[in-house]
Write a protein that binds this DNA or RNA. Structure first.
Lengths: 115, 115
DNA sequence: AGCGTTGTCAACCAATTGGTTGAGGAGGGC
DNA sequence: GCCCTCCTCAACCAATTGGTTGACAACGCT
């Protein structure tokens, strides 16, 4: 689980963390306290979730006095969709080739049947 | 980790499982033995990985005598990219609004400065 | 019927995860 | 200077994960 893609997918595997990402996307930067407020867990637990998101590169934190505003970084999201889309496309191309092959075989069979 | 999206992201968080998905996308259906061959782990470990992928809906297995051909299902991949793209777009729209707001404020400030 | 091949199930193990509580550090406000 | 707010670090805990080995079920072949 050491590479970035693994950390990113791992981070997105938790509903709370996905929810945090969604809120940051919709509402923009927020402090840890604001992020933690809606959840029924300790602030420390949310802080851990943010650390997971940060280690995955999905989020950055700057310093503003004693506040630590959390900012969503879209780059890693693109990394994930890039990976997925790449292989989904490969699968589609393979299906297209398979269909073409089947169609060709079918045609050949029909041709022989007609001769 | 009970909902489908969580299971799907969790499944993709492991490099071995991602590699399996990639191979299925490129080369098409394969048996458990074929899938396990390149890896330096036991067949049982790979079987467990396939179970994770199956529980996530990323893969289906049919029965052909004692073989269990594994087939990639692209639907859940779309589910993942759909989620990600949705919120990435939300973030972009928010940035666009923010930029517009900043530009308007800047213009207003310049206008006042010139008066 | 017996054997080989293919794959799963079960029990176990070490490491990781997601949560808790308690302590403490970093900065502003009085 | 002292406190209050915001947040992180550390230690601990139960549950899950990714791996192992051993047993065995399903099926084709001869």
């Amino acid at each position: 689980m050491s590479d970035q893609l693994s950390r990113a997918f791992q981070a997105m595997a938790d509903p709370t963390r996905r929810d945090i990402v969604a809120r940051l996307a919709v509402s923009g930067d927020a402090t840890v306290g604001e992020i933690a407020a809606p959840y029924d867990v300790s602030l420390q637990a949310v802080s851990k979730h943010l650390k997971v998101l940060e280690d995955a590169g999905l989020v950055t934190r700057s310093r503003d006095a004693q506040r630590r505003p959390v900012h969503l970084e879209a780059g890693v999201l693109d990394l994930m969709t890039g990976w997925i889309e790449r292989y989904r496309q490969q699968a589609e191309e393979r299906y297209a080739r398979l269909d073409a092959l089947l169609a060709a075989t079918e045609e050949e069979t029909l041709g022989r049947g007609a001769s």
